[in-house]
Design a protein around this nucleic acid. Structure first.
Lengths: 195, 195
DNA sequence: CGTGTCATGTAATCAGTTACATGATTCA
DNA sequence: TGAATCATGTAACTGATTACATGACACG
């Protein structure tokens, strides 16, 4: 482990209250979906490591009929480490975008598949947009007491605005592709016609 | 290798013309920077693998004074595989956003560091924005003959619009944080005052 | 004389996903 | 009866970065 982002994601969620690995996964999949993800293959080993480092303690919640729940609670030391990490500036890395890569490389190929590519991309972001709206409504309803909800709303706004902007780009790009498709057929189609 | 995205990124760039690993890295760092990246640790082994699979052929360009260049040229089979991959729909994965994660987790902590976080995020996107403009000018100047430039411009537009949208979000969020900072001090500051 | 560029490659390590194993319960 | 949910974990593997090794030349 070097950057440890997953570790602090887990630790940070524990700071909101005791939880099991299963719980955490649920939370990530609902509240953080659009800007974070973790698999069980990361979560469970990390929880174990947190306990080893005394950043969290583990307690077993017995259940009948179904597997016992392993509940982790953050320790003061855990909180301290977390705050330290939160105080450090966030790092940035390139967001790889397969759609843009394909579009870029498509130049040699054909306009129809470029259109297809962008259309799918649009659908994807339309889906995200509706998911953001659903999520926002759900936090409105349960109206968390803490100032917590405001921060969550900020993250949702970010995702929503990015999605909207992506959709606008798609529409504009589709228009461009359309006019291109009419005006000058691609190299590939030219080749096909020549045969 | 399962999804092989890096492999096709490399192959796709070779489709634009013969190049060395060093060349490819350069291209990625300039033309694809905002939506793709590859390290030498990926590029060189991939080039070797492409040659093994006959998707590219390798030739040595002798140089005096400096190391020989290993030039790779895509083969017809390589082009075929590439086109197949391009025709497949792009996959989507969560774009992990460390800033949003920290903001989300910050709820418990303090408003000042949240502000700092967003301010840095803003700077980051302002930087991207200017880089996009520089890049666009550079492709305008050299005015590639092919329809190539249009596709590249599309990818630049995407990145630019995302950056603009991010900046707008930052401004809006900073305003919100400011009003919060005045109205109700965070839990942490409250604790500090209580002592 | 030091920094940056040109140029290629490998090994070690980290980060992350997927597949597999297990098994009871609930709901349609 | 079959699918989904609850629940935890490991092993194998893929994907990607970083550090290391090498060495000449150009530029200020």
């Amino acid at each position: 482990m070097k950057s440890n982002r997953s570790k602090f994601a887990v630790l940070g969620l524990l700071a909101r209250g005791p939880a099991s690995g299963y719980d955490l996964k649920k939370t990530i999949e609902t509240e953080l979906t659009h800007f974070w993800n973790e698999s069980y293959g990361q979560i469970y080993p990390i929880l174990k490591a947190l306990a080893d480092e005394r950043l969290a303690v583990r307690r077993v919640e017995r259940q009948s009929g179904r597997p016992d729940r392993q509940i982790y609670t953050i320790t003061p030391k855990g909180r301290q480490d977390l705050e330290q990490w939160l105080a450090e500036p966030a790092t940035f890395q390139v967001n790889r975008n397969e759609t843009l890569l394909k579009l870029f490389l498509n130049s040699q190929i054909d306009v129809a598949s470029a259109r297809e590519l962008v259309a799918r991309y649009r659908e994807h972001h339309a889906r995200i947009l509706t998911e953001c709206n659903v999520l926002e409504k759900s936090i409105e309803k349960r109206g968390r007491a803490g100032g917590d909800a405001a921060f969550q709303r900020m993250t949702i706004n970010h995702c929503r605005q990015q999605a909207r902007s992506a959709i606008r780009w798609c529409d504009q790009t589709l228009r461009e592709l359309e006019s291109r498709g009419r005006k000058r057929p691609s190299a590939r189609r030219k080749r096909a016609r020549a045969n």
